[in-house]
Design a protein around this nucleic acid. Sequence first.
RNA 1: GCCUCAUUAGCUCAGUCGGUUAGAGCGGCGGACUGUUAAUCCGUAGGUCUAAGGUUCAAGUCCUUAAUGAGGCGCCA
Length: 482
Amino acid sequence: MQRTKIAELIRTEPVGTEVLVKGWVKAFRNNQFIALNDGSTGSNLQVVVDFEKMDAAILDRIKFGAAIGARGTLIESQGKGQRIEVVASEVEIYGDCNPEVYPLQPKKQTLEFLRENAHLRFRTATFAAVFRVRHALAFAIHKFFNDRGFYYLHTPIITASDAEGAGEMFRVTTLPFDGTPRNEAGEVDFTQDFFKRSTNLTVSGQLEGELGAMALGDIYTFGPTFRAENSNTTRHLAEFWMIEPEVAFADLEDNMNLAEDMLQYVIRYALENCADDLKLLEDRLIEEEKSKPQDQRSELSLIEKLRFVLDNQFVRLTYTEAIDILKNSNPNKKGKFQYPVEGWGTDLQSEHERYLVEKHFKKPVILTNYPAEIKAFYMRQDDPKEGVPGPTVSAMDILFPGIGEIVGGSQREERYDRLVRRMEEMHIPAEELSWYLDTRRFGACPHAGFGLGFERLVLFITGMTNIRDVIAFPRYPGNAEF
RNA sequence: GCCUCAUUAGCUCAGUCGGUUAGAGCGGCGGACUGUUAAUCCGUAGGUCUAAGGUUCAAGUCCUUAAUGAGGCGCCA
Protein backbone atom coordinates (compact mmCIF):
# COMPACT_ATOMS: atom_id res chain seq x y z
CA MET A 1 0.00 0.00 0.00
CA GLN A 2 1.20 3.49 -0.88
CA ARG A 3 2.15 5.75 1.97
CA THR A 4 0.41 9.13 2.11
CA LYS A 5 2.04 12.22 3.58
CA ILE A 6 0.29 13.91 6.46
CA ALA A 7 0.17 17.29 4.73
CA GLU A 8 -1.75 15.62 1.91
CA LEU A 9 -4.24 14.01 4.29
CA ILE A 10 -4.86 17.28 6.12
CA ARG A 11 -5.40 19.06 2.82
CA THR A 12 -7.72 16.53 1.22
CA GLU A 13 -9.35 14.87 4.27
CA PRO A 14 -10.26 11.62 2.48
CA VAL A 15 -12.61 10.45 5.25
CA GLY A 16 -13.56 6.78 5.08
CA THR A 17 -10.55 5.63 3.10
CA GLU A 18 -7.84 3.21 4.14
CA VAL A 19 -4.48 4.99 4.54
CA LEU A 20 -0.89 4.20 5.41
CA VAL A 21 1.04 6.91 7.24
CA LYS A 22 4.67 6.93 8.31
CA GLY A 23 6.39 9.30 10.66
CA TRP A 24 7.81 9.92 14.10
CA VAL A 25 5.96 9.79 17.42
CA LYS A 26 5.61 13.23 18.99
CA ALA A 27 3.40 12.07 21.87
CA PHE A 28 1.65 8.93 23.03
CA ARG A 29 -1.19 9.87 25.33
CA ASN A 30 -3.39 7.67 27.36
CA ASN A 31 -1.88 4.53 25.86
CA GLN A 32 -4.21 5.29 22.99
CA PHE A 33 -3.40 8.45 21.03
CA ILE A 34 -0.28 8.85 18.93
CA ALA A 35 0.62 12.31 17.68
CA LEU A 36 2.44 11.48 14.45
CA ASN A 37 4.59 13.89 12.44
CA ASP A 38 6.32 13.19 9.13
CA GLY A 39 7.84 16.60 8.44
CA SER A 40 5.49 17.39 5.55
CA THR A 41 3.74 19.87 7.82
CA GLY A 42 4.08 21.18 11.33
CA SER A 43 0.71 19.63 12.14
CA ASN A 44 0.60 16.20 13.73
CA LEU A 45 -1.81 13.49 12.71
CA GLN A 46 -3.60 11.69 15.52
CA VAL A 47 -3.40 7.92 15.23
CA VAL A 48 -5.75 6.05 17.56
CA VAL A 49 -4.81 2.56 18.68
CA ASP A 50 -6.96 0.04 20.51
CA PHE A 51 -4.63 -0.93 23.31
CA GLU A 52 -6.75 -3.94 24.26
CA LYS A 53 -6.34 -5.50 20.83
CA MET A 54 -2.83 -4.26 20.06
CA ASP A 55 0.17 -6.49 20.71
CA ALA A 56 1.61 -5.30 24.04
CA ALA A 57 5.17 -5.62 22.73
CA ILE A 58 4.39 -3.16 19.92
CA LEU A 59 2.50 -0.83 22.25
CA ASP A 60 5.51 -0.68 24.54
CA ARG A 61 7.74 0.48 21.69
CA ILE A 62 5.59 3.48 20.76
CA LYS A 63 7.86 6.02 22.42
CA PHE A 64 8.57 9.69 21.86
CA GLY A 65 10.81 9.93 18.81
CA ALA A 66 10.26 6.40 17.46
CA ALA A 67 9.76 5.96 13.71
CA ILE A 68 6.55 4.08 12.98
CA GLY A 69 4.06 3.30 10.28
CA ALA A 70 0.33 3.02 10.88
CA ARG A 71 -2.32 1.59 8.62
CA GLY A 72 -6.00 2.20 9.20
CA THR A 73 -9.13 4.10 8.33
CA LEU A 74 -9.16 7.87 8.19
CA ILE A 75 -12.17 9.17 10.09
CA GLU A 76 -13.56 12.44 11.40
CA SER A 77 -11.98 12.87 14.79
CA GLN A 78 -14.07 11.71 17.72
CA GLY A 79 -12.31 14.17 19.98
CA LYS A 80 -11.61 17.87 19.92
CA GLY A 81 -8.36 19.43 18.80
CA GLN A 82 -8.14 17.95 15.30
CA ARG A 83 -10.51 17.39 12.41
CA ILE A 84 -9.33 13.97 11.30
CA GLU A 85 -7.62 10.95 12.79
CA VAL A 86 -6.57 7.46 11.76
CA VAL A 87 -7.96 4.43 13.56
CA ALA A 88 -5.04 2.07 13.33
CA SER A 89 -5.53 -1.58 12.51
CA GLU A 90 -1.82 -2.17 12.28
CA VAL A 91 1.25 -0.41 13.66
CA GLU A 92 4.78 -1.16 12.54
CA ILE A 93 7.89 0.04 14.37
CA TYR A 94 10.72 1.04 12.03
CA GLY A 95 13.08 2.48 14.58
CA ASP A 96 12.93 2.42 18.35
CA CYS A 97 13.80 5.48 20.40
CA ASN A 98 14.93 4.77 23.94
CA PRO A 99 13.68 7.64 26.13
CA GLU A 100 16.31 6.96 28.78
CA VAL A 101 19.11 8.01 26.45
CA TYR A 102 17.38 10.13 23.77
CA PRO A 103 18.50 13.73 24.39
CA LEU A 104 15.23 15.34 23.29
CA GLN A 105 12.19 15.39 25.51
CA PRO A 106 8.56 16.16 24.78
CA LYS A 107 8.85 19.58 26.39
CA LYS A 108 10.20 23.00 25.65
CA GLN A 109 13.98 22.91 25.20
CA THR A 110 16.17 25.98 25.12
CA LEU A 111 17.66 27.09 21.80
CA GLU A 112 21.11 26.87 23.38
CA PHE A 113 20.62 23.22 24.28
CA LEU A 114 19.29 22.46 20.81
CA ARG A 115 22.23 24.29 19.22
CA GLU A 116 24.51 21.82 20.96
CA ASN A 117 22.35 19.03 19.55
CA ALA A 118 22.00 20.48 16.08
CA HIS A 119 21.91 17.00 14.57
CA LEU A 120 18.62 16.37 16.36
CA ARG A 121 17.04 19.80 16.44
CA PHE A 122 15.22 19.40 13.11
CA ARG A 123 12.93 17.13 15.09
CA THR A 124 11.54 19.98 17.17
CA ALA A 125 8.53 21.89 15.95
CA THR A 126 10.41 25.20 15.93
CA PHE A 127 13.35 24.04 13.85
CA ALA A 128 11.21 22.02 11.46
CA ALA A 129 9.24 25.23 10.85
CA VAL A 130 12.41 27.30 10.42
CA PHE A 131 13.82 24.92 7.84
CA ARG A 132 10.56 24.63 5.91
CA VAL A 133 10.43 28.43 5.76
CA ARG A 134 14.10 28.57 4.79
CA HIS A 135 13.39 26.23 1.91
CA ALA A 136 10.41 28.29 0.78
CA LEU A 137 12.48 31.46 0.81
CA ALA A 138 15.27 29.90 -1.23
CA PHE A 139 12.70 28.69 -3.73
CA ALA A 140 10.99 32.10 -3.81
CA ILE A 141 14.28 33.83 -4.56
CA HIS A 142 14.93 31.58 -7.53
CA LYS A 143 11.36 32.08 -8.70
CA PHE A 144 11.57 35.85 -8.35
CA PHE A 145 14.72 36.11 -10.44
CA ASN A 146 13.69 33.47 -12.95
CA ASP A 147 10.35 35.19 -13.56
CA ARG A 148 12.23 38.42 -14.23
CA GLY A 149 14.56 36.88 -16.78
CA PHE A 150 17.64 36.62 -14.59
CA TYR A 151 20.08 33.76 -15.10
CA TYR A 152 21.38 31.80 -12.11
CA LEU A 153 25.17 31.93 -12.40
CA HIS A 154 27.39 29.61 -10.40
CA THR A 155 30.47 31.58 -9.48
CA PRO A 156 33.51 29.76 -8.10
CA ILE A 157 33.82 28.71 -4.47
CA ILE A 158 37.61 28.55 -4.71
CA THR A 159 39.14 31.81 -5.82
CA ALA A 160 42.60 33.17 -6.38
CA SER A 161 41.63 36.80 -6.12
CA ASP A 162 42.55 38.26 -2.79
CA ALA A 163 41.89 41.81 -3.80
CA GLU A 164 38.34 42.47 -2.79
CA GLY A 165 38.79 43.47 0.78
CA ALA A 166 35.44 41.95 1.66
CA GLY A 167 36.93 40.21 4.65
CA GLU A 168 39.45 37.71 5.96
CA MET A 169 39.63 34.59 3.83
CA PHE A 170 40.00 30.88 4.47
CA ARG A 171 43.04 29.50 2.71
CA VAL A 172 42.64 26.51 0.39
CA THR A 173 45.77 24.45 -0.03
CA THR A 174 47.14 20.95 -0.41
CA LEU A 175 50.60 21.98 0.76
CA PRO A 176 51.86 20.21 3.86
CA PHE A 177 52.03 22.16 7.12
CA ASP A 178 55.25 20.43 8.07
CA GLY A 179 58.06 21.08 5.61
CA THR A 180 56.06 23.63 3.63
CA PRO A 181 57.96 24.27 0.39
CA ARG A 182 59.77 27.62 0.32
CA ASN A 183 61.21 29.64 -2.53
CA GLU A 184 64.63 31.28 -2.55
CA ALA A 185 63.30 34.28 -0.66
CA GLY A 186 62.04 32.01 2.10
CA GLU A 187 58.38 32.59 1.26
CA VAL A 188 55.86 29.80 0.91
CA ASP A 189 56.22 28.44 -2.62
CA PHE A 190 52.67 28.38 -3.89
CA THR A 191 53.82 27.26 -7.34
CA GLN A 192 53.95 23.81 -5.77
CA ASP A 193 50.39 24.11 -4.50
CA PHE A 194 47.44 22.39 -6.20
CA PHE A 195 46.49 25.41 -8.30
CA LYS A 196 50.11 26.58 -8.60
CA ARG A 197 49.09 29.73 -6.77
CA SER A 198 47.60 30.89 -3.50
CA THR A 199 43.87 30.24 -3.28
CA ASN A 200 41.06 30.92 -0.85
CA LEU A 201 37.37 30.28 -0.32
CA THR A 202 35.23 32.97 -1.89
CA VAL A 203 34.05 35.97 0.11
CA SER A 204 31.81 37.17 -2.72
CA GLY A 205 30.82 36.14 -6.21
CA GLN A 206 30.28 39.71 -7.28
CA LEU A 207 33.32 40.30 -9.47
CA GLU A 208 32.66 37.11 -11.43
CA GLY A 209 28.97 37.98 -11.42
CA GLU A 210 29.73 41.25 -13.16
CA LEU A 211 31.51 39.32 -15.92
CA GLY A 212 28.35 37.30 -16.52
CA ALA A 213 26.10 40.35 -16.48
CA MET A 214 28.18 41.92 -19.25
CA ALA A 215 26.79 39.35 -21.67
CA LEU A 216 23.75 37.71 -20.13
CA GLY A 217 22.32 41.02 -18.97
CA ASP A 218 20.76 40.06 -15.66
CA ILE A 219 22.32 37.37 -13.52
CA TYR A 220 22.23 36.33 -9.89
CA THR A 221 24.33 34.06 -7.75
CA PHE A 222 23.09 32.10 -4.76
CA GLY A 223 25.81 30.17 -3.07
CA PRO A 224 27.96 29.60 -0.04
CA THR A 225 30.24 32.39 1.08
CA PHE A 226 33.05 32.24 3.60
CA ARG A 227 34.47 34.86 5.90
CA ALA A 228 37.25 34.04 8.33
CA GLU A 229 36.42 37.03 10.53
CA ASN A 230 36.52 36.48 14.26
CA SER A 231 32.94 37.67 14.53
CA ASN A 232 31.01 36.65 17.60
CA THR A 233 27.52 38.02 17.14
CA THR A 234 23.98 36.86 16.52
CA ARG A 235 24.24 38.16 12.95
CA HIS A 236 27.48 36.62 11.62
CA LEU A 237 28.53 33.21 10.34
CA ALA A 238 31.83 32.01 8.93
CA GLU A 239 29.91 30.06 6.27
CA PHE A 240 26.72 31.57 4.97
CA TRP A 241 24.66 31.79 1.81
CA MET A 242 24.55 34.93 -0.22
CA ILE A 243 22.44 36.09 -3.13
CA GLU A 244 24.13 38.52 -5.49
CA PRO A 245 22.22 39.87 -8.48
CA GLU A 246 24.08 41.93 -11.04
CA VAL A 247 22.18 43.94 -13.63
CA ALA A 248 23.49 45.50 -16.81
CA PHE A 249 22.24 48.93 -17.85
CA ALA A 250 21.03 49.68 -14.34
CA ASP A 251 21.74 52.53 -11.95
CA LEU A 252 21.45 52.95 -8.21
CA GLU A 253 17.74 53.71 -8.44
CA ASP A 254 17.07 50.51 -10.41
CA ASN A 255 19.17 48.63 -7.88
CA MET A 256 17.14 49.90 -4.94
CA ASN A 257 13.90 49.09 -6.72
CA LEU A 258 15.08 45.56 -7.46
CA ALA A 259 16.16 44.92 -3.89
CA GLU A 260 12.96 46.29 -2.41
CA ASP A 261 10.81 44.32 -4.87
CA MET A 262 12.72 41.15 -4.14
CA LEU A 263 12.44 41.48 -0.38
CA GLN A 264 8.75 42.21 -0.57
CA TYR A 265 8.21 39.38 -3.04
CA VAL A 266 9.82 36.73 -0.87
CA ILE A 267 8.11 37.97 2.27
CA ARG A 268 4.76 37.79 0.47
CA TYR A 269 5.65 34.31 -0.77
CA ALA A 270 6.37 33.17 2.78
CA LEU A 271 3.14 34.64 4.12
CA GLU A 272 1.18 32.90 1.39
CA ASN A 273 2.95 29.55 1.49
CA CYS A 274 4.15 29.12 5.07
CA ALA A 275 1.19 30.43 7.02
CA ASP A 276 1.12 27.54 9.51
CA ASP A 277 4.85 27.59 10.16
CA LEU A 278 4.90 31.37 10.55
CA LYS A 279 2.02 31.16 13.01
CA LEU A 280 3.96 28.59 15.01
CA LEU A 281 7.06 30.80 14.95
CA GLU A 282 4.98 33.82 15.91
CA ASP A 283 3.58 31.98 18.93
CA ARG A 284 7.06 30.86 19.89
CA LEU A 285 8.28 34.45 19.80
CA ILE A 286 5.37 35.69 21.89
CA GLU A 287 6.08 32.97 24.43
CA GLU A 288 9.78 33.82 24.48
CA GLU A 289 9.13 37.51 24.95
CA LYS A 290 6.85 36.91 27.91
CA SER A 291 9.94 36.64 30.08
CA LYS A 292 11.18 40.03 28.88
CA PRO A 293 10.16 43.38 30.35
CA GLN A 294 7.33 45.10 28.50
CA ASP A 295 9.50 47.72 26.84
CA GLN A 296 11.77 45.12 25.25
CA ARG A 297 8.96 43.16 23.63
CA SER A 298 8.14 43.54 19.95
CA GLU A 299 5.49 46.11 19.19
CA LEU A 300 4.16 44.00 16.35
CA SER A 301 3.67 40.26 16.19
CA LEU A 302 5.79 38.39 13.67
CA ILE A 303 3.11 38.24 10.98
CA GLU A 304 2.09 41.85 11.60
CA LYS A 305 5.73 42.84 11.20
CA LEU A 306 6.00 41.02 7.87
CA ARG A 307 2.78 42.57 6.61
CA PHE A 308 4.05 45.96 7.69
CA VAL A 309 7.12 45.54 5.50
CA LEU A 310 4.85 44.68 2.57
CA ASP A 311 2.48 47.58 3.12
CA ASN A 312 5.12 50.29 3.50
CA GLN A 313 7.73 51.54 1.10
CA PHE A 314 11.24 51.50 2.43
CA VAL A 315 12.55 54.89 3.45
CA ARG A 316 15.31 56.10 1.14
CA LEU A 317 17.79 58.69 2.24
CA THR A 318 21.38 59.58 1.71
CA TYR A 319 24.16 59.05 4.19
CA THR A 320 24.48 62.83 4.45
CA GLU A 321 20.80 63.17 5.37
CA ALA A 322 21.12 60.34 7.87
CA ILE A 323 24.04 62.08 9.58
CA ASP A 324 21.90 65.23 9.94
CA ILE A 325 19.06 63.26 11.51
CA LEU A 326 21.41 61.47 13.86
CA LYS A 327 23.26 64.64 14.85
CA ASN A 328 20.00 66.31 15.85
CA SER A 329 18.50 63.20 17.45
CA ASN A 330 17.61 63.14 21.12
CA PRO A 331 19.94 60.30 22.07
CA ASN A 332 22.83 62.13 20.43
CA LYS A 333 22.07 65.44 22.15
CA LYS A 334 21.63 63.72 25.49
CA GLY A 335 24.84 61.75 25.06
CA LYS A 336 23.03 58.41 24.99
CA PHE A 337 25.02 57.06 22.06
CA GLN A 338 28.14 55.18 22.98
CA TYR A 339 29.65 56.67 19.83
CA PRO A 340 28.47 60.29 19.49
CA VAL A 341 27.64 61.39 15.96
CA GLU A 342 30.00 64.25 15.28
CA GLY A 343 30.95 64.69 11.70
CA TRP A 344 30.50 63.60 8.18
CA GLY A 345 32.72 60.84 6.91
CA THR A 346 32.81 58.14 9.53
CA ASP A 347 30.88 54.91 9.27
CA LEU A 348 27.62 54.54 11.15
CA GLN A 349 27.71 52.35 14.25
CA SER A 350 25.05 49.72 14.66
CA GLU A 351 23.43 51.79 17.43
CA HIS A 352 22.96 54.58 14.88
CA GLU A 353 21.48 52.25 12.29
CA ARG A 354 19.16 50.83 14.93
CA TYR A 355 18.04 54.30 15.93
CA LEU A 356 17.15 55.21 12.35
CA VAL A 357 15.32 51.97 11.63
CA GLU A 358 13.74 51.12 14.95
CA LYS A 359 13.07 54.52 16.51
CA HIS A 360 13.10 57.32 13.94
CA PHE A 361 11.48 55.79 10.84
CA LYS A 362 10.21 52.51 12.28
CA LYS A 363 10.48 50.80 8.90
CA PRO A 364 13.19 49.41 6.63
CA VAL A 365 15.62 52.09 5.50
CA ILE A 366 17.80 52.29 2.40
CA LEU A 367 20.86 54.43 3.00
CA THR A 368 22.66 55.65 -0.10
CA ASN A 369 25.62 57.68 -1.31
CA TYR A 370 28.11 56.90 1.42
CA PRO A 371 31.49 58.61 1.66
CA ALA A 372 33.85 57.01 -0.81
CA GLU A 373 36.45 56.57 1.92
CA ILE A 374 34.45 53.93 3.79
CA LYS A 375 33.28 51.90 0.80
CA ALA A 376 34.72 49.44 -1.69
CA PHE A 377 36.80 50.40 -4.71
CA TYR A 378 34.33 49.20 -7.32
CA MET A 379 31.49 51.51 -6.32
CA ARG A 380 30.58 54.26 -8.75
CA GLN A 381 31.94 57.69 -7.86
CA ASP A 382 29.25 60.35 -7.54
CA ASP A 383 29.48 63.82 -9.01
CA PRO A 384 30.15 66.46 -6.34
CA LYS A 385 26.94 67.79 -4.85
CA GLU A 386 26.11 70.95 -2.95
CA GLY A 387 25.83 70.38 0.77
CA VAL A 388 27.79 67.14 0.66
CA PRO A 389 31.17 67.69 2.32
CA GLY A 390 33.18 65.04 0.52
CA PRO A 391 33.26 62.55 -2.35
CA THR A 392 30.60 59.87 -2.23
CA VAL A 393 29.83 56.67 -4.11
CA SER A 394 26.54 55.21 -5.37
CA ALA A 395 26.32 52.67 -2.59
CA MET A 396 23.20 51.46 -0.87
CA ASP A 397 22.67 49.52 2.35
CA ILE A 398 19.26 48.23 3.33
CA LEU A 399 18.75 48.19 7.07
CA PHE A 400 16.11 46.01 8.71
CA PRO A 401 14.89 46.22 12.29
CA GLY A 402 16.61 43.74 14.57
CA ILE A 403 18.97 42.61 11.81
CA GLY A 404 20.84 45.68 10.73
CA GLU A 405 22.35 45.48 7.28
CA ILE A 406 20.52 42.85 5.25
CA VAL A 407 21.57 44.10 1.81
CA GLY A 408 24.68 45.92 0.70
CA GLY A 409 25.10 46.99 -2.88
CA SER A 410 26.01 49.70 -5.33
CA GLN A 411 26.08 50.95 -8.84
CA ARG A 412 29.48 49.87 -10.14
CA GLU A 413 32.18 52.16 -11.45
CA GLU A 414 32.08 51.37 -15.16
CA ARG A 415 34.52 54.14 -16.21
CA TYR A 416 37.89 52.49 -16.71
CA ASP A 417 40.11 55.46 -15.83
CA ARG A 418 38.25 56.35 -12.68
CA LEU A 419 38.17 52.75 -11.53
CA VAL A 420 41.89 52.28 -12.05
CA ARG A 421 42.65 55.55 -10.26
CA ARG A 422 40.53 54.46 -7.32
CA MET A 423 42.27 51.09 -7.18
CA GLU A 424 45.62 52.84 -7.07
CA GLU A 425 44.44 55.05 -4.24
CA MET A 426 43.28 52.02 -2.29
CA HIS A 427 46.44 50.01 -3.08
CA ILE A 428 44.58 47.29 -4.97
CA PRO A 429 46.89 45.59 -7.47
CA ALA A 430 45.37 46.16 -10.90
CA GLU A 431 47.41 43.39 -12.52
CA GLU A 432 45.67 40.75 -10.36
CA LEU A 433 42.30 42.00 -11.50
CA SER A 434 43.05 42.53 -15.16
CA TRP A 435 40.23 40.14 -16.06
CA TYR A 436 37.85 42.31 -14.05
CA LEU A 437 39.13 45.50 -15.65
CA ASP A 438 38.51 43.98 -19.08
CA THR A 439 34.80 44.51 -18.50
CA ARG A 440 35.58 48.23 -18.43
CA ARG A 441 37.83 48.08 -21.47
CA PHE A 442 35.49 46.19 -23.78
CA GLY A 443 31.86 47.22 -24.07
CA ALA A 444 31.51 48.66 -20.60
CA CYS A 445 28.06 49.78 -19.52
CA PRO A 446 26.46 51.19 -16.41
CA HIS A 447 25.49 48.34 -14.10
CA ALA A 448 24.57 47.68 -10.51
CA GLY A 449 24.06 44.88 -8.05
CA PHE A 450 23.85 43.94 -4.42
CA GLY A 451 24.48 41.17 -1.91
CA LEU A 452 21.75 39.77 0.28
CA GLY A 453 22.67 37.70 3.32
CA PHE A 454 20.30 34.77 3.05
CA GLU A 455 20.46 33.80 6.71
CA ARG A 456 19.73 37.37 7.75
CA LEU A 457 16.62 37.23 5.60
CA VAL A 458 15.58 33.93 7.16
CA LEU A 459 16.28 35.41 10.58
CA PHE A 460 13.98 38.35 9.91
CA ILE A 461 11.16 36.29 8.46
CA THR A 462 11.18 33.50 11.04
CA GLY A 463 11.55 35.88 13.98
CA MET A 464 14.47 33.85 15.30
CA THR A 465 17.06 35.98 17.04
CA ASN A 466 20.34 34.13 16.55
CA ILE A 467 21.63 33.48 13.04
CA ARG A 468 23.07 30.18 14.23
CA ASP A 469 19.49 28.93 14.54
CA VAL A 470 18.48 29.48 10.91
CA ILE A 471 21.25 27.45 9.23
CA ALA A 472 21.38 23.71 9.71
CA PHE A 473 24.95 23.38 10.90
CA PRO A 474 26.38 26.78 11.73
CA ARG A 475 30.07 27.49 11.37
CA TYR A 476 31.49 30.21 13.57
CA PRO A 477 34.74 30.83 15.45
CA GLY A 478 35.59 27.77 17.48
CA ASN A 479 32.80 25.66 16.06
CA ALA A 480 32.50 23.37 13.05
CA GLU A 481 30.55 20.59 14.77
CA PHE A 482 28.55 18.06 12.74
C1' G B 1 39.43 40.58 19.43
C1' C B 2 36.98 43.58 23.62
C1' C B 3 33.05 44.10 27.57
C1' U B 4 29.14 41.93 30.69
C1' C B 5 26.68 37.77 32.62
C1' A B 6 26.15 32.59 33.39
C1' U B 7 27.73 27.20 34.48
C1' U B 8 23.88 23.10 40.58
C1' A B 9 19.89 16.08 38.67
C1' G B 10 18.70 13.91 31.72
C1' C B 11 16.27 19.26 30.72
C1' U B 12 14.76 24.13 32.95
C1' C B 13 15.85 26.39 37.33
C1' A B 14 15.75 27.70 43.06
C1' G B 15 19.43 27.46 46.85
C1' U B 16 18.86 33.28 52.33
C1' C B 17 24.57 36.39 55.77
C1' G B 18 29.81 31.19 54.26
C1' G B 19 27.21 26.78 58.75
C1' U B 20 24.00 20.12 59.84
C1' U B 21 21.54 15.40 55.22
C1' A B 22 21.69 20.54 48.19
C1' G B 23 15.58 21.28 46.57
C1' A B 24 11.41 21.94 42.80
C1' G B 25 9.01 21.33 38.04
C1' C B 26 9.43 18.61 33.73
C1' G B 27 11.63 14.11 31.82
C1' G B 28 12.95 8.65 33.17
C1' C B 29 11.43 4.13 35.63
C1' G B 30 7.16 1.18 38.19
C1' G B 31 1.90 1.19 38.79
C1' A B 32 -3.28 3.05 38.08
C1' C B 33 -6.74 5.21 34.61
C1' U B 34 -8.59 4.75 29.42
C1' G B 35 -11.38 9.95 24.06
C1' U B 36 -6.38 12.08 25.25
C1' U B 37 -4.40 17.28 23.41
C1' A B 38 2.33 19.74 27.42
C1' A B 39 -3.19 13.84 29.34
C1' U B 40 -4.08 12.92 34.58
C1' C B 41 -3.15 10.42 39.47
C1' C B 42 0.14 7.49 42.95
C1' G B 43 5.05 5.79 43.88
C1' U B 44 10.34 5.82 42.88
C1' A B 45 15.46 6.43 41.37
C1' G B 46 18.64 10.19 39.92
C1' G B 47 24.11 15.09 42.19
C1' U B 48 32.44 14.83 41.55
C1' C B 49 27.36 21.88 42.53
C1' U B 50 32.14 23.15 34.95
C1' A B 51 37.71 22.42 36.13
C1' A B 52 42.15 23.58 38.85
C1' G B 53 44.12 26.37 42.70
C1' G B 54 43.34 29.61 47.04
C1' U B 55 40.97 32.02 51.66
C1' U B 56 38.42 29.82 56.02
C1' C B 57 37.25 25.93 61.85
C1' A B 58 33.72 25.41 57.69
C1' A B 59 32.79 26.89 50.45
C1' G B 60 27.38 25.30 45.78
C1' U B 61 28.00 30.30 48.17
C1' C B 62 34.10 34.41 48.77
C1' C B 63 38.95 35.13 45.64
C1' U B 64 42.28 33.73 41.21
C1' U B 65 42.94 31.29 36.63
C1' A B 66 40.95 28.37 32.73
C1' A B 67 37.11 26.05 29.73
C1' U B 68 32.33 26.30 27.74
C1' G B 69 27.84 28.98 26.75
C1' A B 70 24.80 33.50 26.21
C1' G B 71 24.21 38.71 25.22
C1' G B 72 26.42 43.41 23.66
C1' C B 73 30.41 45.91 20.71
C1' G B 74 33.85 45.80 16.51
C1' C B 75 34.45 43.55 11.37
C1' C B 76 29.93 42.72 7.70
C1' A B 77 25.87 40.10 4.50
